[in-house]
C-alpha cells in the first residue's frame, strides 16, 4: 500500500522524457495513468528509483485522423477511447473493447499505451489492437519506428519496445464501414481481467461469405495473439463454418492455468467465445 521512495520527474515533451530515460537508464520507469505501475509499486513488486511522468505530455494524448489513419496517443485514457465519436464510428471494435476494461475508475485513468506496454496476458486491449491490425509507434533518441501489433507482443509482460523507447501512439487503418466486429470477454470474477477475451473483425463478400477475418485473443496464453488458424479456416466460407473454425483458436496454444480456470477450461472458453464473437461480428457485418 506504500510505494518505496523514488525521484519524480515530470516530462513536458517526448523529447524530454527520452532524455530522462537515457539519463536514468534501468532505474527509471515511465508513468502515464499509472494503473499498471502504481499497483505494482504499492506492493513493492516494482521499486523504480526514478519515475518519469509522461501523463501531461500533450503530444501523447488525443485521437486524430491522419492520412486516412486514426492515431491514438499512448496517454489517451480508456474512457476517451470508449467515448470518442471518431473511434466509435471508425474503430467500433476498439471502443467496444475499451468499454469492457476494468471499471469506470480504471478507464478514467488507464491509458492505451500503458496497457500495451505492460503486456499483461489478461489485458483486454491487445486482442482488439491485434484484430484491428494496429501499429505501435515507438520513439527513442535514435529515432522513431513502427511495430505491427502482430510483432509487438513477445511474451508474458514483454514487448518489442526496447529500453530507451517510448510507446507514443497506436495507428489504425479503419476497417471498411461494412465490416462487422465484436469483443467478448469472460471476466475473472475477482479482478475483472479477461480469463479469455476474443476480438473478431470480419468483412463479407458479395455472397455474404467471409472475405477477411481477423481474430485477436487475450487471456488464453502468456501473450495475446492472432488466431490465424481460425482466420484461414474461414476464408471464403459462410456462417456454417464458424463452429468448426472457432475450435482452431487453441491450435498450438499453451493455455494458462490458475485457480480461476484450468488450461482446459480456458481453452474451451476460448473456443466458445471465438464462435460467439464471430457470430456476432457476422451478424453486424454488411455484404
Amino acid at each position: 500500500m506504500f510505494p518505496a521512495p523514488f525521484e519524480y520527474h515530470r516530462a513536458g515533451s517526448v523529447k524530454e522524457a527520452l532524455s530522462m530515460l537515457r539519463q536514468f537508464g534501468d532505474d527509471a520507469k515511465l508513468l502515464a495513468g499509472g494503473h499498471s505501475l502504481v499497483p505494482m509499486m504499492k506492493m513493492r513488486l516494482a521499486t523504480p528509483a526514478h519515475l518519469i511522468d509522461i501523463g501531461s505530455v500533450r503530444e501523447l494524448s488525443g485521437i486524430r485522423e491522419e492520412g486516412g489513419k486514426i492515431v491514438i496517443g499512448a496517454a489517451t485514457t480508456h474512457a476517451q477511447v470508449e467515448t470518442s465519436d471518431l473511434v466509435r464510428r471508425k474503430l467500433g471494435l476498439l471502443a467496444e473493447c475499451a468499454a469492457l476494461i476494468g471499471d469506470v475508475q480504471v478507464r478514467n485513468r488507464g491509458t492505451l499505451g500503458g496497457s500495451l506496454a505492460h503486456a499483461d496476458p489478461a489485458a483486454d486491449y491487445p486482442a482488439a489492437v491485434l484484430a484491428l491490425d494496429g501499429e505501435v509507434s515507438l520513439e527513442s533518441e535514435s529515432g522513431a519506428r513502427t511495430v505491427k501489433a502482430d510483432d509487438f507482443f513477445i511474451d508474458l509482460m514483454t514487448t518489442a519496445a526496447q529500453p530507451g523507447e517510448i510507446v507514443t501512439a497506436v495507428r489504425f487503418t479503419p476497417p471498411a464501414p461494412a465490416a462487422g466486429y465484436a469483443y467478448l470477454k469472460h471476466r475473472q470474477p475477482a479482478s475483472g481481467f479477461a480469463l479469455v477475451g476474443i476480438a473478431a473483425l470480419v468483412t463479407l463478400d458479395g455472397k455474404g461469405n467471409f472475405q477477411s477475418v481477423r481474430v485477436g485473443v487475450t487471456g488464453l496464453c502468456a501473450k495475446a495473439f492472432r488466431a490465424k488458424a481460425v482466420e484461414s479456416a474461414l476464408a471464403g466460407k459462410g456462417r456454417d463454418a464458424i463452429a468448426q473454425a472457432a475450435a482452431h483458436v487453441t491450435d498450438g496454444a499453451d493455455a494458462l492455468s490458475d485457480i480461476h480456470a484450468s488450461s482446459e477450461f480456458r481453452s474451451e472458453l476460448a473456443r466458445v467465445y471465438t464462435r460467439r464473437a464471430l457470430e456476432q461480428a457476422l451478424a453486424r457485418a454488411k455484404s
Partner: peptide
Amino acid sequence: TSLCGACTVLMNGRAVKSCTTL
C-alpha cells in the same frame, strides 16, 4: 489492488481511484 473503490474521488469531474494515483 485498485478493486474496492472505497477511495474513489472525482478528478477533474471524473471518478478515479485515489489509491492508484500519486
